[in-house]
Amino acid sequence: METIQIIALAILQGLTEFLPISSSAHLILLPKLGGWSDQGLAFDVAVHVGTLSAVVWYFRCELLKMSRDWGVSIVERRMVGESRLAWAVLLGTIPVGIAGLLLKDLVETSLRSPLVIAWTTIGFGLLLWWADRQGKRVRDEHSLGWGDVLFIGAAQAIALIPGTSRSGITMTAGLMLGLERAAAARFSFLLSIPVIVLAGGLHSIELIKQGSGVDWQALLFGTVLSAVSAYLCIHLFLKLLERIGMVPFVIYRLALGAVLLALYF
Rank of each mutant, 00 (worst) to 15 (best):
A184C: 06
T120S: 13
A255F: 14
L115C: 07
R243H: 07
V80R: 13
S110Q: 11
M171G: 00
V195I: 15
R112L: 07
G211P: 02
A258T: 13
W57L: 14
L29V: 13
L9V: 08
G257E: 03
L144R: 07
L106Y: 11
W57M: 13
G71F: 04
F18D: 10
S212W: 09
E76Q: 09
I117T: 05
L240P: 01
V138D: 11
W129V: 05
D132A: 06
W130A: 08
H142P: 01
F249R: 07
G35K: 08
G40R: 08
L12Q: 05
S192M: 13
I11T: 06
V149Q: 02
R133E: 08
I7G: 02
L33R: 12
V75M: 08
G153H: 07
G123T: 01
S212N: 15
V228Q: 05
A54M: 06
L111W: 15
S24W: 06
G178C: 04
L175S: 01
G147Y: 06
F237C: 04
A8Y: 09
R133A: 05
V56T: 14
G34I: 01
S113A: 12
F237G: 00
F249A: 09
Q5R: 14
A8N: 02
K239L: 09
L12W: 07
T164W: 01
L29H: 11
L191A: 11
T109P: 00
P114L: 09
L232Q: 09
K32Y: 01
R137I: 00
I205Q: 14
G100L: 10
L126Y: 03
A185D: 04
A157Q: 06
E62R: 15
T120R: 12
L260G: 03
T164Q: 02
L29K: 04
A199M: 09
S113D: 15
I208W: 15
F265S: 15
G213W: 08
G174C: 03
R137Y: 01
L33Q: 12
V197Y: 02
R253V: 02
Q210A: 15
G211L: 14
M1W: 14
M171I: 15
T109N: 14
G92T: 11
T164G: 02
L261P: 11
G145V: 01
A185L: 02
R78Q: 14
A8W: 10
G200L: 03
F18G: 02
Q210P: 00
M66W: 03
A88P: 00
G211Q: 14
G211N: 12
A8K: 04
L85E: 10
Q210S: 13
K65W: 11
L64V: 14
S83I: 01
S22V: 10
S53R: 02
R84V: 05
V195H: 05
A54R: 07
I251T: 10
E180S: 13
F124N: 08
A46G: 12
V138M: 13
L27S: 05
F59N: 11
L179Q: 08
L198Q: 07
Q13E: 15
S165N: 08
L256E: 06
E242P: 00
